[in-house]
Amino acid sequence: MEPVLVTVQLKKHYGPIQAVNGLDLAVQKGSVYGILGPNGSGKTTTLGMLLGITNPTSGSFSWFGKGQIDDNRKRIGSLLEQPNFYPYLTGEQNLKVVALIKGVDEKEIDGVLSAVNLLDRKKSQARTYSLGMRQRLALASALLGNPDVLLLDEPTNGLDPQGIAEVRDFIRNQSAQGRTIILASHILDEVEKVCTHVSVIKKGNLLAQGTVNDLLKGEDQVEIAGDNLAALAEQLVNYPGIKRTELLSGNILLHVEEGFNPAALNKYFSDKQIHLSHLVARKKRLEEQFLELTAE
């Protein structure tokens, strides 16, 4: 598959602060690529560089295999946190400006406006729009010119649950139509639900990159406790299917392989005349996984 976007050692420093510190990303055509990181991890700075509004300190990136030429951006539809429009222009006039910049036929404007349900308000000034309407206008603007890539920065920020569901449906639909989607988010659940690929960044550093299945798959865990934790742990040394044993204050946490059978473990102990006071099998929650990835 051909890459839509490649970055090489992309860096942005503000004085001594390293906002983005040598990112190497590769986004394949047709993927839904999540950039996951806590607030302040450098996601928006990275998107700013990719969209030409922030000058990189060093490193490079290339869209569509064509380097950093400005015309690349005409093939990208962006929806950043805050929709920016000329407040005194009508919705339609605002899109005319965008169409002229992108070199798109003005006849497409009505189409994208009706796709976001704004056709009847197209003659109203953008300043009279509610936040939700402005976001829809931004969406219409992003879709203008049928872009190859959609770049979304925290698209569900500040939306109610229904709005969030709509945005996620929108992303799935767009992806189904073959568009590549790049999504920056600090919400693990969101990335897990809509993305195929993910990179996890923290303080401007790339921690991990891969498919969502590989990176964010939940891990099986078993918690046990008994009278003598040390003795329990001793018995587990050669037990099959245990990846790692963690001795906690009141119990023992076992990181186990998929398909691990807790009943068999219980029997193993009772055969040895050791009785467990506590046995819980669970999937490790993704949040913990994420916190672990981004921990110090």
Binding site: D70, R73, S78, N84, F85, Y86, V97, V98
Partner: peptide, 19 residues
């Protein structure tokens, strides 16, 4: 100045205009 306060200069560039 409006292009800065409305952040539309930024938007124009994102949409594909050269600086």
């Amino acid at each position: 100045g409006n292009e800065y306060t409305y952040r539309t200069l930024r938007q124009n560039i994102i949409d594909g205009l050269q600086r």
